[in-house]
Design a protein around this nucleic acid. Sequence first.
DNA 1: ACCTTTGTTCGCAAATTAACGAACAAACAT
DNA 2: ATGTTTGTTCGTTAATTTGCGAACAAAGGT
Lengths: 99, 99
Amino acid sequence: MKDQEIITEEQKKIARFAKAMGHPVRVYVLEILSKQSCCYSGDLSEILPIAKSTLSQHLKELKSAGLIQGETEPPKIRYCLNQQNWDLAKKNFENLFGE
Amino acid sequence: MKDQEIITEEQKKIARFAKAMGHPVRVYVLEILSKQSCCYSGDLSEILPIAKSTLSQHLKELKSAGLIQGETEPPKIRYCLNQQNWDLAKKNFENLFGE
DNA sequence: ACCTTTGTTCGCAAATTAACGAACAAACAT
DNA sequence: ATGTTTGTTCGTTAATTTGCGAACAAAGGT
């Protein structure tokens, strides 16, 4: 046996999701996306008091955690939730918190 | 008006909780505590493959996020969920994910 | 060809996080 | 008084995160 695996894959996954949600701006973005289907990065950029480049990094972080996805629609990019992983995250958190 | 407050207090709170949950060890601890009422730090220390001091810091982090609390019961310390904040976190996440 | 719009990537700096071992502190037992 | 048990704190190191502006890239319009 290679690994005693004290910590489960699900726990790691929760931590990964949680980490991505661990910043106010990213929570803000997720909340927007969970309420309306999609949004353009530019809209966020106008509202949020941060530099474009900073926003871009937050979106990248959310994307690499699998929580959102972006469809290029030149010259803009439309961001949506990655519904599959969003549902997974939801389920994982429900498990943790207990129904 | 002092603040335009683009980002709500609730979003900040979610981010705070999420950040605390953003590490596998801390998720592990929370899961233990949500399943059984309490546990001793020493029990965790025996199981988890990390140094005592590292575990202590993770517990401190969870405590300062308000998710757990520790009652000193010399020479041990018994850790439990901070039920009030745990419930709040649960509710906040439910709001975000949608019921 | 040139400009505009929209975002990303590239340094860069500052702050935070993660991890360890060693030293320390509290409480109790011998 | 000494030792034991249990955890915390300290000091250090390495890695990651956050944030910015400047430079760059892609796609369309003039």
